[in-house]
């Protein structure tokens, strides 16, 4: 990302589009992601949201925690609903508005992937933001396709998840859409700039995948949301990048890691109770995967 355009804390707008007193858990990573993304989108925005933690954060009838128009939709239909909003905007002469789908990782990479794939293939003029807290948190921490290997969840209670995390942003990138980016709740300014950029790239489908630490689901104290998120990036487990018109580049903290030493993944695993069942074998396997991935970045 162009350094000159980078937003700083000081010039970041203090306009808030999310009201306090909402029902998000204490220390919720999504709280940061949502607040920041809406700052970047501004008030000329329409949202489509499936059932998820965000549904609860957004408020129970008749009070809304968000100062934006929003249509809540069924679990599998987020991207199609955003498509419908955009079609209506064109049909009613309000095409300047941002149309944004905002969904969790299960709603995106599992049940919602068909609608999302369809929207990407059609090149729908929408921004899709996935906040990835790596399990079905709203229903009480069940495994999802994006839960990492080894993680204890309520549906992988003894052995931990046996399969690796589904690489959703790569699947979306394979559709050849204009913009795919990853971001982290721990780096809100980077997230802000990516959402801004996505909003400016009107015309095609834009996808942003945001790593979003969850204190109760991951098992860490509420005060460590930022620390845990940053550590994931420092280990090279979750990388910040952009794929713009097919061109891949690491950004922000991940770009700074190129050619430098990364924090061993074992350190990250120690910070969360969800990894308590990890065997040394899985830890070594995960470290090897990360090392190979980073070797490819430098090659």
């Amino acid at each position: 990302m162009d350094n000159a355009k980078k937003t700083t804390i000081l010039n970041l707008t203090d306009d808030e589009l999310v009201n306090p007193g909402n029902r998000a858990c204490s220390g919720c990573g999504l709280g940061i992601v949502y607040r920041t993304a809406l700052k970047a989108l501004g008030k000329d925005t329409v949202l489509a949201v499936p059932p998820s933690c965000l549904t609860v954060l957004q408020g129970l009838y008749p009070v809304a925690a968000t100062k934006l128009p929003c249509v809540n939709v069924t679990f599998a239909s987020t991207a199609a609903a955003a498509t419908g909003v955009r079609a209506a905007m064109r049909a009613t002469g309000r095409d300047h508005l941002n149309v944004v789908a905002f969904a969790g990782d299960g709603g995106t990479g599992d049940i919602g992937i068909q609608a999302l794939s369809g929207a990407c293939e059609r090149g729908e003029d929408i921004i899709y933001i996935c906040y990835d807290n790596e399990a079905y948190m709203n229903t009480g921490v069940q495994r999802s396709g994006t839960t990492p290997k080894g993680v204890m969840t309520t549906t992988t209670p003894i052995k931990g998840k046996l399969q690796h995390k589904k690489d959703v942003p790569s699947i979306i990138a394979a559709h050849g859409i204009d913009y795919v980016a990853t971001a982290s709740a721990a780096y809100p300014l980077d997230l802000y700039d990516k959402v801004k950029k996505a909003a400016a790239m009107k015309g095609g489908t834009r996808y942003i995948h945001v790593h979003t630490p969850c204190p109760p689901g991951w098992g860490f104290d509420t005060r460590y949301t930022i620390k845990v998120g940053k550590m994931s990036v420092a280990t090279g487990l979750f990388d910040l990048y952009e794929i713009e018109k097919g061109k891949f580049s690491l950004t922000g903290e991940s770009a700074k890691r190129l050619g430098k030493e990364r924090t061993p993944i074992a350190e990250y695993f120690k910070t969360q109770r969800r990894f308590k069942g990890l065997t040394q074998e899985i830890i070594d396997e995960m470290q090897a995967i990360i090392d190979d991935k980073w070797a490819a970045y430098t090659a």
């Binding site: 249509v71 239909s77 991207a79 199609a80 609903a81 419908g84 068909q114 609608a115």
Partner: peptide
């Protein structure tokens, strides 16, 4: 499923 989603949203 998406056809009706589009209609619901639009």
């Amino acid at each position: 499923h998406s056809a009706m989603a589009v209609c619901i949203a639009s």
